[in-house]
């Protein structure tokens, strides 16, 4: 009778529910949809029935899931632990507390690499994206020959990250490079661009900006999605080209710009190959970007505990930079679905 009390309370508003409870225990209580309460032993099964493949789904994603757990999550945790040790690959790691971090706080080369990396990120990303957007807008207007231009302009991006292009750069911007035959025409004295501390980083920034092709293609695809009616309506209203750019192109394109900025910044913080091949961090550490500094600690002197601490600091920096990008984006990124203005 104790159960009746409970079921009566529910039965008050709905008359057939009493019956439903009875038949609900029978194997096939189909015709009484609204009423049946789950049997305790089938609750788990019912929870799973919300999914079309509760077990097969895991099988399908298992290659990634296993890889994620073993090759990413576990190493991340381990790297956090190692950052508090004196690990050097060959000997057992010893816990040394925060010594690595305290040492880093006094490491002149660490602060140098931070300065170099931030300079690199803050110059190369805006330069690359500005060029990409400008060229994308030009290409968006060209009706004919778009694929030829796209090919010519994209090709450097295709090969730009390779060691082959780093070799090319080393030659072009060296003392005997052909750049030195061109710059006097612009009134600049020839010099060894790669061997001069004040200009070495600039050659790397130019190399990065030269590879604007991917960002450009993403911009181009974004531009194609802006309805032509918006421009037509505003030119009827007498808006200037500049005004159209500011009031239509930029807001409509802002989600795509955000994507390019976020990915561009994350990638720029990790730049390695060009700095390693072209300048190897020199001259006088003027191009020793963070990833290169970390590499030298980990695989040059095998201070792997120290390098792990550096890696975690990089993770925090990248996370903060990305969060800032997303937080600031609330003030400038325009989403059609939210604003609803476009439709």
């Amino acid at each position: 009778m104790t159960t009746t009390n409970h079921s009566q309370q529910q039965a008050v508003p709905l008359a057939p529910s009493e019956a439903a409870e009875v038949t609900g225990r029978a194997p096939a209580g189909q015709q009484l949809r609204p009423g049946p309460r789950p049997k305790p032993q089938t609750a788990f099964r019912r929870a799973l029935s919300r999914y079309n493949a509760p077990f097969a789904g895991f099988l399908f994603i298992s290659p990634w899931l296993i890889g994620f757990l073993l090759l990413q999550l576990w190493p991340i945790i381990q790297s956090f632990y190692l950052s508090f040790t004196d690990y050097n690959l060959l000997d057992q790691a010893h816990w040394i507390g925060t010594k690595n971090f305290r040492q880093i706080a006094h490491d002149r080369l660490f602060f140098n690499s931070l300065k170099v990396t931030f300079t690199y990120v803050l110059t190369s990303v805006p330069l690359k994206l500005a060029v990409a957007l400008l060229v994308a807008m030009l290409l968006n207007r060209a009706v004919r020959g778009i694929s030829i231009y796209r090919t010519l302009i994209y090709l450097p991006s295709l090969i730009g990250g390779s060691i082959a292009v780093a070799v090319l750069w080393r030659n072009i911007f060296g003392l005997d490079g052909f750049i030195n035959k061109i710059v006097p025409l612009l009134g600049i004295a020839p010099k060894n661009w790669i061997g001069t501390p004040t200009t070495a980083l600039a050659t790397l920034v130019i190399l990065t900006a030269w590879q604007f092709g991917s960002a450009m293609i993403i911009f181009l695809a974004g531009l194609k999605q802006i309805p032509a009616e918006l421009y037509e309506a505003s030119s009827v209203d007498g808006a200037s080209k500049l005004r159209q750019f500011v009031t239509i192109t930029l807001p409509m394109l802002s989600p795509v710009i955000l994507f390019n900025v976020v990915m561009g910044v994350i990638n720029a913080f990790q730049t390695f190959t060009s700095a390693f091949i072209i300048t190897n961090g020199g001259p006088v550490n003027s191009t020793e970007v963070y990833a290169l500094f970390l590499y030298k600690k980990a695989f040059g002197t095998f201070e792997m505990g120290y390098a792990s601490a550096l890696a975690w600091i990089l993770l925090v920096i990248v996370a903060i930079a990305t969060s800032i990008n997303f937080i600031v984006s609330k003030y400038w990124v325009f989403y059609e679905s939210e604003g609803g203005a476009a439709k």
């Binding site: 090759l71 550096l310 890696a311 990089l314 990248v318």
Partner: peptide, 12 residues
């Protein structure tokens, strides 16, 4: 978005 440096050393 994860910087590969974070997993580099334990993976190695």
């Amino acid at each position: 978005m994860l910087p590969s440096q974070v997993t580099l050393i334990p993976q190695y």
